[in-house]
Amino acid sequence: MSAPLLELAGVHAGYGPFKAVVDVDLTVPAGGAVALLGPNGAGKTTVARVVSGLVRPTAGTVAFDGEVISGLPAHEIARRGVAHAPEGRSVFATLSVEENLALPLRQAHGTARAAELTDQAYAMFPRLGERRAQLAGSLSGGEQRQLSLARVLVDPPRLLVVDELSLGLAPVIIGEVYQRLAEIRRLGTALLLVEQYVEHALGIAESIVVLRAGEVAYAGAPLPTDELSQLFLAAG
């Protein structure tokens, strides 16, 4: 296995006295795909936020590509190649489709190149092209997901953290979105998939980490769903 791209060591994090994550270790190899699973409220979202710098760990370190990134501001981490699609609505509802694409692309590549990449995104998702002037908030849940994915597809980050990708999406669209994720992977992007719904994530990840009540309950090779539901639903 290649050297880890992302490495969390002994990470604790929370909000005030609320300890969301306790002593979590997690590694994502370069180009690898790891699924972070667990029931609702287990701390998965907090781990994703710690990686992208939205939440600072109270203890432990996050290293990306061999450098410690915990403590850096979120935009600094984003510029190093970590993209984070947060849980729920992950587009700017009050900006148009085009502006949603332009915001990160212009920041990374300048206006001219951003325009080219935006056109590529429309070629990939014609539906977005049709709605380029529309406010992103008026798109359906599936289209909003397409929009956040289109951006990473045309400009693949080194690590993509996706939080609750399938939340609120019709099963057909979930399948479609996962196909796209597989494409991103082929482009060399490592994936950290945060999921409560395990089935699709299991199809793409080569290793999984299961959180329960903020602690790592299992880390290793994927488990069959019935064993997972034991981990999720049964007494721990």
């Binding site: 935009h75 009050t94 900006l95």
Partner: peptide
């Protein structure tokens, strides 16, 4: 305009909010 909606999401786009 992005910061108006969500400073944190703007940061995720690599912009220094």
């Amino acid at each position: 305009r992005a910061v108006v909606e969500s400073p944190r999401m703007t940061q995720l786009a690599g912009v220094n909010a």
